[in-house]
Write a protein that binds this DNA or RNA. Sequence first.
RNA 1: GUCCCCAUCGUCUAGCCUGGCCUAGGACACCGGCCUUUCACGCCGGCGACAGGGGUUCAAAUCCCCUUGGGGACGCCA
Length: 498
Amino acid sequence: MTLDKTETTRVRFAPSPTGYLHLGGARTALYNWLWAKKTGGVFILRIEDTDAERSTAESTEGILHGLRWLGLEWDEGPFYQTANLPKHIEAATKLLESGHAYRCYCTREELDAQRKAAEAQKRAFIYDGRCRKLTEEESPAKLESGIPYVVRFRTPQTSAVAFDDLVYGRIEKQGHDIEDFVIVRSDGRPLYILSNAVDDAHDRITHVIRGADGIANTPKQVLIYNALGITPPTFAHMPLTLDNKKAKLSKRSHGEVVTVAYYEKRGFIPWALCNFMALLGWSSADGREFFTREELIEAFDLTRINRANSIFNYVPGDTKNWTDPKAIHFNSTYLRTIPPAELEPYVREELQSAGLWRESFEGEEKEWFLKTINLIRTRYLTLTDFSERGRCYFSDEFSFDQKAVAKNLKDSNLRTYLPELSDRLEALPDFTAYEIEEVFRTYSEEKGIKAGIIINGSRTAVSGTSVGPGLFEMLEVLGKDRVVKRLRDVTPLIPEAV
RNA sequence: GUCCCCAUCGUCUAGCCUGGCCUAGGACACCGGCCUUUCACGCCGGCGACAGGGGUUCAAAUCCCCUUGGGGACGCCA
């Protein structure tokens, strides 16, 4: 099989369904997707489920869900690697027949002992290839006797293998540094190293874009391609993302903060996460950081991928920066800058799950709804803020922050001011920010008090907090009825004069 | 231990290939200030890095070597 230069680009994301979709995997998927889109190619999803012991259907579901949530739709698949088993076996047989592979009868026990011995001597363990030396009589005899065997690749010892990586450049490895690796287990099931290469060839993959931990496998796979008479794909390894202690990211040691599902749960806009991940190991030529999908596809380039590993700056226990602060920055920026119409579906979903959604927000109150989310979003970080910090806009059942009450409602005169303001506001023909401000300014002048007293008091009375949008716009959005009621109902929280 | 890879502010990075425009630029975070009824936003300013040592050169963040540090791989896992 030769690679026609005019053939369209074909890339794949090939996760093993043995856990959740994590940030590292998602970023790999994103880079593949970007490259496919950029080149007008095809993005394939392949589930590498050959590890029967650890693969689960739940995991597959989670991966598919995560990719869809991120908006990284695949063009072909999902293909399941186990479905290609016959092809993998066929390839192994071919390698055996052509002499590129041989049967090895060494037992696990023997190999474990050798490995231990090597370790004890602080020596690298490389299988010594003793079975490749089996004589022509010995081998068939062993085969006859039914002794279990694995199939090993016969690595050329005297030559080197090299490949030109799109990000790391030329990587060369000496044959004698590569052991005769196993390609088929003793139970006849082929191993990843073989299956993966065979599938990539079968799917006509042109570019293998994967984590740098795959570099060590690449020379072995190149050997397999060559032995099978297949032109290897082009490789592009991307640097790994480590934690702030420079350890590999894993669900086990970092918990759900490294899973894509967690960002969905915590109120991320999917594209904000994609945009953040894209910048972990890649930068645009012009230094820009915010991109729409189309812009990122346009700007993306495999050759601008960085070679150094990057660190996911997550500090356990930090409640404000519960994930990398830059990721939060991306999310909050998107939250307050995308067109309200684009934001609306996300907010709707958030309010629905919080039980705050009303159908009228999409009907007669639509205009009000968009105006409201547009007003409050500038200080929100995630979508969950709409249902938590924004609760007072969508429900009359909101709680009072004790600090805010103590600070803004401590003046006992407010027991008089607030109801009086309420009366004046109720009499307003047009409940607009401008008219409302007039009421407040006039009132403070009449009483000879600082406007801040009634402004801050009112803020806490209607929202329960000491922070939020400009008061007058806020009251306008809240509407006359609610404002009038809340200003009166808050009286019990204000201390009586002594 | 062996092999492979990497090394610029706390973090993400630009610059490195094709040495001089780099008293090293941007972003996040942090700290000041302005704006202001609060909190944000916004704007202005500050803090802050070429791992170390040798070369090569008129000139090195950029090229070469060594050291150190870090990561990855070393499975009948993927």
